[in-house]
Computed example of a mutant assay.
Amino acid sequence: MKIKEIIVVEGKDDTVAIKRAVDADTIETNGSAVNKEVIERIKHAHEVRGVIVFTDPDYPGERIRKIVAKAVPGCKHAFLPKNEALAKSGKKVGVEHATPEAIRKALADVKEEQGDFHSEIDFDALVNAGLIGGTKAKERREKLGVLLKIGYTNGKQLYKRLQMFQITKEAFDQAVEKVLQGEKAK
């Protein structure tokens, strides 16, 4: 089984386990203190081939997943149930302890990024920013899409895209301010 995307894992033992199960390339975070260099590599990998985040089913693994998902919106996610990631001792869990079959199944069931992210940006904020309705709404959405790197959306899709890419209210407000400042400069 060949995996097109680059798989983000926690460490070398996870890479070994992945390569036993599938033909894939990996990026190792080397623990839960994910540094800027690793994030930049993941961003580049996401742009070039796509990324699947495949971390251990424990607190540090979930922490890494959230860090990566926040820094690199749009990642895919593979999840391994704890019972399929148990070490023989039964005390530790991790991708490195999973069977090749369990890893292949998790990768076959990859999920698009959904997360439990709930933006503070509501529909009224879009209307108030002039992004829905009005003569300049389309142009503003185009500029906003470039600034936030979420692409162009119509009015109905903008809210969904802000959620999907986990755009914070602060980032949204800053981008809207730049769009409106650009209009005033004309």
Results as ranks from 00 to 15, higher is better:
19 K>V: 01
19 K>S: 11
20 R>E: 14
20 R>M: 13
20 R>T: 01
20 R>Y: 00
20 R>V: 00
21 A>M: 10
21 A>R: 12
21 A>I: 06
21 A>S: 11
23 D>S: 14
23 D>I: 08
24 A>E: 05
24 A>G: 03
24 A>M: 03
24 A>I: 02
24 A>V: 02
24 A>D: 06
25 D>S: 14
25 D>H: 10
25 D>T: 02
25 D>Q: 14
25 D>K: 15
25 D>E: 15
26 T>F: 02
26 T>K: 08
26 T>Q: 08
27 I>T: 09
27 I>Q: 10
27 I>W: 08
27 I>K: 13
27 I>L: 14
28 E>R: 11
28 E>A: 14
28 E>V: 07
28 E>T: 09
28 E>W: 00
29 T>I: 05
29 T>K: 04
29 T>G: 08
29 T>H: 05
29 T>Q: 03
29 T>R: 07
30 N>T: 00
30 N>D: 11
31 G>P: 12
31 G>V: 05
32 S>M: 06
32 S>E: 06
32 S>I: 00
33 A>M: 11
33 A>G: 09
33 A>V: 02
33 A>T: 09
33 A>D: 14
34 V>T: 08
34 V>P: 06
34 V>G: 07
34 V>Q: 04
35 N>R: 14
35 N>Q: 10
35 N>G: 11
36 K>M: 09
36 K>L: 12
36 K>A: 13
37 E>D: 15
37 E>Y: 07
37 E>M: 10
38 V>K: 13
38 V>M: 05
38 V>N: 07
38 V>Y: 01
38 V>Q: 06
39 I>W: 01
39 I>G: 05
40 E>V: 00
40 E>L: 10
40 E>A: 14
41 R>T: 03
42 I>F: 01
42 I>C: 09
42 I>W: 01
43 K>P: 09
43 K>R: 15
43 K>E: 12
43 K>G: 03
44 H>I: 03
44 H>W: 08
45 A>Y: 07
45 A>G: 11
45 A>S: 12
45 A>E: 14
45 A>R: 13
46 H>D: 10
46 H>C: 03
46 H>L: 04
46 H>S: 14
46 H>P: 09
47 E>N: 14
47 E>R: 15
49 R>F: 08
50 G>R: 10
50 G>V: 05
50 G>E: 04
50 G>T: 08
50 G>L: 08
50 G>M: 07
51 V>G: 13
51 V>F: 11
